[in-house]
């Protein structure tokens, strides 16, 4: 990007934020009236700002939602049209309760790291950017679920995204040891560089990998802070139920 283009972009951002000095503002507005490229850049910046605002709102509501669901734990009522139906429903419910108790007891006594892992592991979804003409081979392989290829392609990579994808691929291939190595590598790289590239994603999947690898204490050390931090990307995924299960596995 040339210096003048860069300066112009900076001006646009100041304009968008409403902090461009009045004299420069008038000049920029004149340019915007005739320069369609500049106008388009401003439109994109406005959309970016709106997208952030929308994201922030959704995050905030999501945090409050969790609090309110805890506060309003009363189960929701289903409708019933007569006492007979209620009685019938009650007897069915009692039967279901017995079945549920049986299933719960079965689950309690047959709990395993692999089972807890499978209940919680979801393949990381790569964002789809439809109009990009070029997609890196590794991302293509990942989307096509060719996990062996993903691990091979990321073998010598130092790109955090590719190491992350390869680590998730190792999890999918039931190889938690290699997955753990990969996630730890990303976290130590982030620590060194001060960046946070795939940090939160790696923390969550590292926790799951430790469960699969039967390192339950370590899994808890990683998952508990995620549960305690409402700002963490995976805060909602780490439920009290998951923590309790890992505790029972120790």
């Amino acid at each position: 990007m040339s210096n003048s283009t860069h300066n112009m972009s900076e001006k646009l951002v100041l304009y968008l934020d409403g902090v461009l000095p009045e004299n420069e503002k008038a000049e920029l507005e004149k340019q915007l009236a005739t320069d369609t490229v500049l106008q388009e850049e401003l439109d994109n910046l406005k959309l970016a700002k709106e997208a952030v605002r929308n994201y922030g709102l959704k995050q905030e509501v999501s945090g409050i939602h969790q609090q309110m669901m805890t506060e309003m734990q009363t189960p929701l009522r289903q409708i019933g049209s007569s006492r007979r139906i209620i009685r019938y429903t009650m007897s069915v419910a009692a039967g279901l309760l017995v079945i549920f108790a049986g299933i719960t007891a079965y689950n309690y006594f047959t709990i395993s790291g692999e089972k807890v892992f499978k209940e919680n592991f979801r393949l990381y979804e790569l964002a789809t950017v439809r109009d990009y003409t070029w997609v890196p081979t590794i991302e293509k392989a990942y989307k096509e679920e060719d996990f062996r290829m993903v691990t091979a392609l990321a073998d010598t990579s130092s790109n955090p995204k590719y190491i992350f994808l390869s680590s998730v691929a190792y999890l999918q291939l039931n190889d938690p040891v290699e997955a753990i190595k990969g996630f730890q590598k990303i976290l130590s790289m982030d620590k060194e560089t001060g960046s946070a590239s795939f940090k939160e994603e790696s923390e969550y999947y590292l926790g799951l990998a430790c469960i699969l690898d039967k390192q339950y204490d370590k899994a808890l050390q990683i998952l508990q802070p995620i549960k305690d931090n409402p700002d963490h990307l995976y805060h909602e995924k780490v439920t009290g139920k998951l923590i309790r299960k890992v505790n029972r596995l120790r």
Binding site: S9, V13, E40, E41, N44, L45, L47, A48, K49, E50, A51, V52, V129, R130, D131, Y132
Partner: peptide, 19 residues
């Protein structure tokens, strides 16, 4: 912000959706 702007600029379909 510029990073977001560039993703939007490179992707007309996404831009339309956002609009």
């Amino acid at each position: 912000l510029k990073q977001l702007e560039q993703i939007i600029a490179a992707n007309p379909a996404l831009k339309q959706t956002l609009k």
